Simulated assay, not measured.
Amino acid sequence: MTSYNSVLPLDMGVENPFRSIIPYKPYYFTEHGSAYLADSLEVMKNMPESSVNLIVTSPPYALVYKKEYGNVDANAYVKWFMDFADQFLRVLTEDGSLVINIGGSWNRGKPTRSTYQFELIIELAKKFHLAQEFYWYNPAKLPAPAEWVTVRRIRVKDSVELVLWLSKSPFPKADNRKILQPYSKDMQRLIERGYVAKKRPSGHNITSKFQRDNKGAIPPNLLQVGNNDANSPYLQKCKESNMKPHPARFPKELPQLFIDFLTDQGDVVMDPFCGSNMTGIVAETRKRRWIGIESIEDYLKASEFRFPHIYR
Score class of each variant (00 low, 15 high):
Met1Leu: 10
Asp83Ala: 09
Glu192Tyr: 14
Leu10Met: 05
Pro272Glu: 01
Asn176Pro: 11
Lys209Met: 07
Gln132Pro: 01
Asp264Gln: 13
Ile296His: 08
Phe29Cys: 00
Ser202Ala: 10
Val72Thr: 15
Thr279Leu: 01
Ser51Thr: 04
Val14Pro: 02
Lys141Glu: 02
Arg177Ala: 13
Ser169Thr: 15
Met187Leu: 06
Ser34Thr: 05
Lys79Pro: 00
Ala197Ile: 04
Arg312Cys: 06
Tyr28Asp: 02
His246Asp: 13
Leu89Lys: 14
Ala125Ile: 06
Ser6Tyr: 11
Lys45Trp: 01
Gln188Thr: 13
Gly103Ile: 05
Glu123Gly: 05
Ile102Tyr: 09
Lys66Ser: 06
Ala38Arg: 14
Leu166Pro: 02
Asp271Gly: 07
Met1Asn: 03
Thr285Phe: 11
Tyr36Ser: 06
Trp136Met: 10
Met12Gln: 13
His309Asp: 11
Phe84Thr: 07
His204Phe: 10
Asn205Val: 11
Leu223Ala: 07
Asp95Phe: 10
Asn242Glu: 14
Ile102Leu: 15
Tyr234Met: 05
Arg113Tyr: 09
Phe84Asp: 07
His204Leu: 12
Leu92Arg: 05
Glu15Phe: 11
Ala230Ser: 14
Ile259Gly: 01
Pro60Ala: 04
Asp264His: 14
Val163Arg: 06
Asn46Cys: 03
Tyr183Val: 00
Val56Trp: 00
Phe128Cys: 04
Val56Ala: 03
Pro59Gln: 03
Thr93Trp: 05
Gln132Cys: 06
Gly226Ala: 13
Tyr195Met: 09
Lys141Ser: 14
Tyr195Ser: 02
Ser241Thr: 14
Leu222His: 07
Phe134Trp: 09
Val7Cys: 03
Gly104Gln: 05
Lys168Asn: 05
Gly203His: 07
Ala144Tyr: 07
Glu192Val: 05
Val72Pro: 07
Asp175Lys: 03
Glu15His: 12
Leu63Val: 10
Pro111Thr: 00
Thr279Ala: 11
Ile191Ala: 04
Ala248Trp: 00
Ile191Arg: 15
Thr57Asn: 08
Phe307His: 06
Phe18Lys: 11
Val99Tyr: 08
Gln256Arg: 15
Ser241Lys: 13
Ile296Ser: 02
His32Asp: 06
Glu42Val: 14
Val156Asp: 12
Ser184Gly: 04
Lys252Pro: 00
Pro272Lys: 01
Gln87Gly: 01
Asn138Thr: 10
Asp86Cys: 05
Tyr137Val: 07
Ser295Met: 14
Glu68Gly: 08
Ala125Val: 07
Phe29Asn: 00
Tyr65Thr: 10
Lys199Gln: 14
Phe128Gly: 02
Asn277Met: 11
Lys301Gln: 13
Asp158Cys: 01
His204Ser: 08
Ala125Gly: 02
Asn214Phe: 05
Ser159His: 12
Ala131Trp: 04
Val269Glu: 03
Pro220Asp: 08
Phe273Ala: 04
Leu164Met: 15
Asp267Val: 11
